[in-house]
Amino acid sequence: MANKNADNQVSAVRRAKHGWILTLVFSLLAVAWLYPIFLVVINALKKKAFITREPFALPNGRSFFGIQNFISGVEKTQFFSAIGNSVIITVGSVAVIIVCTSMCAWYITRVKNRLTSAIYTLCLFSMIVPFQMVMFSLSKLANMMHLSNPIGIILVYLGFGAGLAVFMFCGFVKSIPLEIEEAAMIDGCTPLQTFFRVVFPIMKPTTITVAILQAMWIWNDYLLPYLVLDLKRYKTVPIVIQYLKGGYGAVDWGTMMAMLVLAIIPIIIFYAACQKYIIEGVVAGAVKG
């Protein structure tokens, strides 16, 4: 008995010592991991001539440029209207995707016939089709149907993002006991009431997962909005960043760095606010996908 206690103590001591070294190693690694972001921030505060010449130097008296890069960048790219467009497109698409695909998933799981199983198979199939396969015809179709604006593109996102969302909601609906819904119907609920009062609240974990995965995709998507939107009037955040390189001849690294910082800030805020949901959502999404 005494011997066993001593054994436990030894292993506890060893583990703690080991853990301390690991914590140190990981702390260094975490700092290194964040270094690229830090580098962008310090360069955003420097005059452009100093950025490419000495990117790793901290801003000093000669190279410090204050927030001039931010001011000229925001003016040149109309950054805030791009943020506005990105927010409208992302929030709108995610909301529409969640409501429409959860309803569709419930319907095709509860009503079994050839049509609904065909829909399910098509949704699965669409998940492996790369965007390049449809990009030309999809963007031309969208232009013909006058969907080249931040509201119209929501329909395009619903169409192209439906596969994954329907698939994930179907997975969850299958696990809901039928008795709950039957009870609601017997109590006089219409199918719509049953869905919104009973089924939809139960689906909350899947809803969060779908929302996070779709939001991450749509906020950062570059090619689809670039091809679909009327770029003279509407740009999103990734599009203005890419425009800084393409549209103005040689890259002005000063404004580029400043705009990168502005593009990262909303993401960091979002991450800080719902980190727990994001990480849980990713795990749940991966296990089902």
């Binding site: 429409c100 695909t101 309803m103 569709c104 419930w106 319907y107 095709i108 609904t116 829909i119 098509l122 949704c123 669409s126 089709v129 449809v134 015809s137 999809l138 179709l141 149907m145 329909l155 395009v156 996102y157 619903l158 169409g159 192209f160 439906a162 596969g163 329907v166 199918p191 869905f195």
Partner: peptide
Amino acid sequence: FALPTMVAFTLGFVVP
């Protein structure tokens, strides 16, 4: 329930 998603899915995926 299903038609809105199906219309968008047809336009956004099946037809293209």
